[in-house]
């Protein structure tokens, strides 16, 4: 398993510090041949003409079969997702976890091809820890946000083939001094980012949503912000959790690929909350029932 790393010690002089001291986990995966993401250059070579990536069918670069939503509330950020995974018109799985904790301060919600999305989450989680341990300081929030963008770009070949697209949203905060005495950078309160299919990252000032059910949810949130008299960002945590559940229900009403709340088999959406001093918290099913008695 670990033989690829032996040369670094066995030839201590030959292998300069630059080769392995960068703290870059993607680079380590490449060097050891364990990267789950196909090399775009290699794919195009396999396809024949240099630089050409074969496009299988015309890929849609926006909506994917799911709904993940996130928005700011008074004390932080709520990020939630339904549990359904589909393949074409078939419901594959009704207990998919699409809201994934990358580390104590970072949560990623995925929309897109599950195979790629879960690998991205795993790669990201490992790369943050790898950087922190090897460089003895935590990765800055900015670098974490870019790392996900880079992963999406690394996956460009698959995206263009229409088989491996991922359009995630990311909720993250930075608390210096949490990981080590060396904690770098100033504290940054919970912040939302969304990405396009090519890896560009955007800061969301109010809300970020992704997936095929998101247009419906977004419309409702816009309506609430404009006409309800109480902005989502003015709501407290209980109200925010209730609103997130309502938005997911609306999405499930119109989108076949979004699973609603299944009372019979006790399947509830995933809801996570990031608050400034507290880090990340899972909202339990009991709590969901309590804040939204209708469910």
């Amino acid at each position: 398993m670990m033989t690829p790393h032996l040369p670094a010690l066995a030839a201590p002089v030959a292998s300069g510090p630059a080769s392995s001291f960068s703290g870059d986990f993607f680079d380590l995966l490449r060097r050891t041949g364990t990267s789950p993401f196909p090399d775009a250059a290699a794919l195009s070579r396999a396809g024949g003409a240099p630089g050409a990536v074969t496009i299988g069918h015309s890929p849609s670069l926006s909506a994917e079969a799911t709904t993940v939503i996130s928005f700011h509330f008074r004390d932080g950020v709520v990020i939630a997702g339904d549990r359904r995974a589909t393949a074409g018109h078939t419901i594959m799985y009704d207990r998919a976890d699409k809201v994934i904790e990358i580390d104590a301060d970072t949560v990623m919600a995925i929309a897109g091809t599950p195979a790629t999305a879960f690998e991205m989450a795993r790669t990201l989680a490992h790369s943050f820890q790898y950087y922190r341990r090897s460089q003895l300081q935590p990765l800055s929030l900015e670098a974490k946000v870019r790392a996900l963008g880079r992963l999406i770009r690394e996956n460009l070949a698959m995206t263009l083939q229409g088989v491996g697209m991922v359009v995630p949203i990311l909720a993250a905060q930075h608390r210096p001094g949490l990981d080590a005495a060396l904690g770098a950078g100033a504290a940054i309160p919970p912040t939302l980012y969304f990405y396009d299919a090519l890896g560009a990252q955007f800061l969301a000032v109010d809300h970020a949503m992704s997936g095929s059910g998101s247009p419906a949810a977004r419309s409702v949130l816009n309506y609430i912000n404009r006409w309800s008299g109480k902005l989502a960002r003015e709501r407290d945590e209980r109200e925010a959790i209730a609103l997130a559940l309502q938005l997911l229900e609306v999405a499930a009403e119109t989108d076949t690929a979004t699973g609603g709340i299944d009372r019979r088999t006790h399947i509830y959406p995933q809801v996570k909350v990031l608050t400034a001093p507290g880090g990340t918290r899972d909202v339990s099913v009991e709590e969901m029932r309590e804040v939204l008695p209708g469910i």
Partner: peptide
């Protein structure tokens, strides 16, 4: 060097 080799090996295996 030793620390880095250990971290590399552990993370590749863990991943």
């Amino acid at each position: 060097r030793v620390r880095q080799a250990a971290i590399d090996a552990a993370h590749v295996e863990g991943f």
